[in-house]
Computed example of a mutant assay.
Amino acid sequence: MKKCMSIWVFITVLFTAFVVPSTGFASTGDQGINEKLGLPIVVYGEALSQSQKTDVAELLEVNQHDQVDEFTVNGQDLANYIGGNPNSNMYSSVKIIHKDNDAGLNIEIVTPDNITQVSKEMYTNALLTAGVENADVLVASSVKVSGHSALTGIYKAYDAKGVKLDEDRMQVASEELDIATDIAEEEGIDQAKISELLTEIKKAIAEQDPATKEEVEQIVQDQLQSLNIELSPEDRQRLTDLFDQMRSLNIDFDQVKTQLEDLTGNLQDLINDDGFWKSLQTAVQNFFTSLSNFVKSLFN
């Protein structure tokens, strides 16, 4: 029995070492205080109890930093930033770590089971619309929530640190998140598919620079057709109105397009990387060679 257990322990460790690739979100551990970029920012939902707040702080790895700036977001903030209900209970919490220029925007939902309506791609799209870039953003909740209030927490974090985001862009970004989650739920379309649609529409706007609402409507229709997505006339109109609003704002769609391509291109780069597949093949071969040698040694 002990010998069998040893074999399985060895297999598990060996497989992990040789085969499982090393992936993950950008490190948020303790690297000291970055005097140029400032302290990490943590924003807690006001509706959290003290024990829930403690749980969220652990999920966001707050204790991994020497110092953090902490704030609380409430219903009044929701009303102030995006015109929401001031009596709303706010549970979603975020940690933001500012990065150097060109680092890109990286989102991680630490509690995916508790953020029920918003995917990290949806957050990324909305935050780029709002003008947030070059940051690591972690989202967490200790209870099941839609995830919309996290956006308000991010807005408050920037405001509290003296970074003024454009109010019109914040409003449109929040509308974008609402429309994305509504369509995904009402039309029964996968969140990733909706995020892909939003991304491709933005890329097309960057390339075509539409001058009229009719041209925006054509872009929306073309991307729906390209992705084989069927929407009701009402939802198609909502998308057209949304992106026509964006067109009228001071948004550098070329810059947005670049960041979106960075977001969606990483996995494709990995798939097309011959070196990666050769390394994986070598790792698998090494695994089975080591396994064979170990098993033989047990019976010698």
Rank of each mutant, 00 (worst) to 15 (best):
E200K: 15
E196L: 06
Q171S: 12
I183F: 14
G188M: 10
E187I: 10
E176K: 06
D190M: 12
K202A: 14
D178R: 12
D168A: 11
E196T: 09
L198G: 09
L197P: 08
S195H: 00
I201A: 07
E186G: 07
T199H: 11
I201T: 00
A173P: 01
I194D: 04
E175M: 04
E187F: 12
T181N: 11
D168M: 02
E175C: 02
Q191M: 07
Q191H: 08
V172M: 02
I179D: 06
I189Y: 04
A184M: 03
L197M: 03
A173H: 04
A184G: 01
I201S: 04
M170Y: 05
Q191E: 05
A204Q: 13
T199Y: 09
S174K: 13
D190H: 03
A192L: 06
T199I: 03
E185G: 03
I179K: 12
E200G: 05
G188V: 06
A180M: 08
S195D: 01
T181W: 15
D168C: 01
I179L: 13
Q191N: 07
A180P: 00
I179P: 01
D182L: 08
E176S: 09
I189T: 13
R169G: 11
E186S: 13
G188S: 10
E186V: 06
I183R: 13
A184E: 01
I183H: 14
A204C: 04
E186T: 13
Q171I: 11
M170T: 03
S174I: 09
Q171F: 12
M170K: 15
S195V: 00
K203C: 02
D190Q: 15
T199K: 15
